[in-house]
């Protein structure tokens, strides 16, 4: 039974992680930075699922399940922080939010 080799999925996950990492490092909008963090979490999910199929072990499906639940919690709290910062500062530009820098 010929299937797409696992290494293809791993390289796709690496590319997705690097796109997310690039977004976190270069974008100025805090909301877009959050979206890029979601991309990086999905790259981790894809790696887990690729190895789950490789090994025939369904435990690899449990980790993405928990990652999706934690991502939902993270998005709720993170967006609440963004709203709170916007209310106090009037901006979500991470270059202008630097009172904890020094």
């Amino acid at each position: 039974m010929p299937v797409v080799p696992t290494v293809n999925y791993l390289i796709l996950a690496a590319a997705l992680f690097c796109v997310g990492m690039l977004g976190v490092l270069i974008r100025r909008n805090a909301l877009v930075v959050f979206m890029c963090i979601e991309l990086m979490l999905n790259a981790a999910n894809l790696t887990f699922l690729a190895f789950a199929r490789e090994r025939g072990d369904v435990t690899g499906h449990i980790s993405p399940f928990f990652i999706i639940a934690v991502a939902a919690a993270e998005a709720a709290v993170g967006l609440a922080i963004v709203i709170s910062v916007f209310r106090n500062r009037g901006t979500v530009n991470i270059e202008e939010i630097q009172s904890m820098k020094h």
Binding site: N42, N45, L46, H61, P64, F65, A72, L79
Partner: peptide, 27 residues
């Protein structure tokens, strides 16, 4: 779609429901 190719149908459905549905609506 990639998850379905990896035979992870349940996670693919969760991905659409929770990520593309709930989390992105919040965003």
């Amino acid at each position: 779609g990639i998850y379905v190719l990896l035979w992870a149908h349940t996670i693919a459905v969760l991905q659409v429901l929770v990520y593309a549905g709930a989390i992105m609506v919040l965003f």
